[in-house]
Amino acid sequence: MSILIRLTWPSAAPIRVVERVDGARALLGNALTVHSTLVTINQDEAMRRMSSASLVQGEESRRLAEETIEQGEQVETISSWAAILFTPSSPRWPRSASRLTKPQWVLV
């Protein structure tokens, strides 16, 4: 079904309105499809950049964790040697240990 409309300015030919509207609708639909595709491409690129940044950050976190473990092992080794070197080899009791007061237990 087509509707004919005559325009009033000079040399105007009859225009088929329905065909023009259908053409405009198809053009608009194509434009929206292209826009949607471009937005999707931009989102994919943004996600790709964020993923690669996340991978770099994860690698950095893994490296820092390994360094922390290594430092902890070094501290453990140093503490062990410090305990060995600075622990006295004999008890430092006074020469007259008999003068030390011993606790007196009183039973009630």
Rank of each mutant, 00 (worst) to 15 (best):
S90M: 13
M1K: 03
T40Y: 07
A65Q: 07
V56P: 01
V56K: 08
V39K: 10
S90E: 13
R16D: 15
V34R: 13
R20K: 01
T33M: 04
G72S: 08
H35W: 13
V21Y: 04
T33P: 00
V75G: 00
S90L: 14
R49A: 08
Q43W: 05
E76I: 02
R48W: 06
R63K: 14
N42F: 11
V18F: 07
G58M: 12
T40Q: 14
E67A: 03
W81K: 08
E67C: 03
E66P: 01
L27C: 02
L38I: 07
L7A: 14
L85N: 06
T77W: 01
G29L: 04
H35K: 15
R99I: 10
I41K: 11
Q104I: 15
G29Y: 03
L28F: 10
L27D: 06
G23S: 09
T37D: 11
A82I: 00
P10I: 05
Q71C: 01
T40V: 09
A97T: 12
E67R: 10
V18M: 02
S61L: 14
S2A: 13
Q43C: 05
T101Y: 00
L4D: 14
T87S: 13
E59T: 02
S89H: 12
V18S: 02
A53W: 00
P14H: 15
I3Y: 08
I5A: 11
S90D: 11
A65S: 02
S51Y: 01
P10Y: 01
V21G: 08
A12Y: 09
S90G: 07
L32G: 00
L38T: 03
S36V: 10
T40F: 09
E60H: 12
I15D: 11
W81M: 09
V34K: 12
R25K: 12
R99N: 10
R95S: 13
T77H: 03
A53N: 12
G58D: 12
L55E: 04
R49M: 08
R62W: 03
E66I: 02
D44W: 01
P91E: 10
A53C: 05
L4H: 13
